[in-house]
Design a protein around this nucleic acid. Structure first.
Length: 202
DNA sequence: CGGCCGATTATCT
DNA sequence: GATAATCGGCCGG
């Protein structure tokens, strides 16, 4: 399990460090896990794409706290988004987990998300991932560094830097520049991820 | 394949 | 009252 100090750095540094790590969720006593393959960084009140741009509110309070906690919010009237709080107390920052390569508990994940059970690439979106893992607002504010918790992150396989694409964040609507074009999205191509896992893990 | 659109409600102005 | 860190379905090329 990754310790608190791992998370204590600005989101644009934490986001690439989380690529390749293993996200673990314990549901009904069962382990659901996958390799994180896509992340985005949201850093500080000055970042106009970050929810914390409006300052401390009820929703954003978790982002202002200690790193290594889950910031989970509801959007588009139907989707939960999973973020990991970064940086230090008083500096609001978080990393959005956008995609993962499933490793453990596939059966329960497909049960949680029946409609996509057949697709070859079925956890390539932040809301797909939370549905498969059974992550909702009930877990907002969870400590990822607690042994008895139901969600945490573990060390994972090394991902070669040349397989990680860096682009602008997506879905930001009319966020002004320079934030709209900030290269704060890291992603491993899904076919590359498959090959890598086959060779590294089997 | 790429672009457009409706769904559906918490949160903030 | 407007908007949203999305998704899936439907359209045309």
């Amino acid at each position: 399990m990754l310790e608190r100090s791992f998370y204590q750095r600005p989101a644009p540094q934490l986001a690439p460090a989380l690529i390749g790590k293993i996200l673990v969720r314990v549901q009904a006593g069962q382990r659901l896990a996958g390799i994180i393959t896509e992340t985005e960084a949201y850093q500080g009140q000055e970042d106009l794409a970050c929810h914390a741009r409006a300052g401390l509110t009820k929703r954003t309070s978790v982002m202002f706290g200690e790193p290594g906690y889950a910031y989970i919010y509801f959007t588009y009237g139907m989707h939960w988004m999973l973020n990991i709080v970064a940086d230090h107390i008083g500096s609001p920052a978080a990393v959005l987990i956008r995609a993962m390569y499933p490793l453990e508990g596939l059966e329960l994940m497909q049960q949680n998300r029946p409609n996509l059970a057949q697709s070859p690439n079925w956890l390539n979106g932040p809301a797909k991932l939370t549905q498969a893992l059974g992550v909702t607002g009930a877990l907002n504010g969870s400590d990822l560094c607690q042994e008895q918790g139901t969600i945490h992150i573990e060390e994972g396989p090394h991902i070669p830097a040349n397989l990680v694409k860096i682009t602008a964040r997506i879905g930001l609507g009319k966020t002004p520049e320079p934030w709209l074009s900030m290269p704060w999205r890291w992603q491993v191509d899904s076919s590359d991820a498959s090959k890598l896992i086959e060779t590294e893990i089997g």
